[in-house]
Design a protein around this nucleic acid. Structure first.
Lengths: 108, 108
DNA sequence: TCCATATCTATTAATATTCACATATTCGAC
DNA sequence: GTCGAATATGTGAATATTAATAGATATGGA
């Protein structure tokens, strides 16, 4: 089904940016306002908003407005699983590279 | 750690394209040659090669050459987990939308 | 009402990605 | 060696994304 591939592609594209990953990580411990994120990320508030709006449009985040502040949360906890599996894939690659280096050292 | 976010971003970017997702799906049942993929995908052989080379450079795929053919495999089975979690996220969104529609219907 | 704060949106230049097409390369058969 | 098949790489135009800036909107308090 093409729709499924397109959905997944959009989802992964939304995750394909370091700042957005940092935001998701910060939100993994609970909801945060834009300014809290902005201080933690040390980038312009409008840049934070831009990235948030990308993830909102892809349905990754929920926004709750209270007064002048907007609190963001990760909509689906499975997003956290994606991030932790990505970390595991990274660790596997490091492990593989280490084994290759050792195997090479044994040849000397 | 910035390196981790960058790695993950590159990984997710590599997954952020419908054709590449279709390739990974085809490879999930075992290794395939470029021409097998090309026939299944119904796109130019050189386009298949382009997408394969992107995933190879991100370490997602392994290539094994035999004669004039090249057999590709998914390097880390965890990639399959990423895809199936993405599917679950899709299903959750559909479920949510259905509940919202029902809730709205009850108001009429 | 006026002001300051918080957030969002619009714009634009720089950069990256995609897609299609043309050209290379590699290998086996003859 | 030459041919054809399989795969890879190079190129360039169209499109998308990024990042920075400026401007707009909304809210609560003086």
């Amino acid at each position: 089904m093409a729709a499924m591939h397109d959905f997944k592609a959009e989802l992964f594209k939304a995750l394909g940016h370091p700042t957005r990953l940092r935001i998701l990580e910060l939100l993994s411990t609970g909801e945060k306002t834009v300014s809290e994120l902005q201080i933690a990320l040390e980038i312009e508030a409008s840049s934070v908003s831009q990235q948030l709006s990308i993830m909102r449009s892809r349905q990754l985040l929920d926004a709750r407005k209270n007064g002048t502040k907007v609190f963001y949360t990760v909509r689906d906890p499975l997003i956290g699983n994606l991030l932790s599996i990505a970390r595991q894939i990274f660790e596997n690659q490091v492990t593989n590279m280490n084994s290759m280096l050792e195997a090479e050292r044994d040849l000397d």
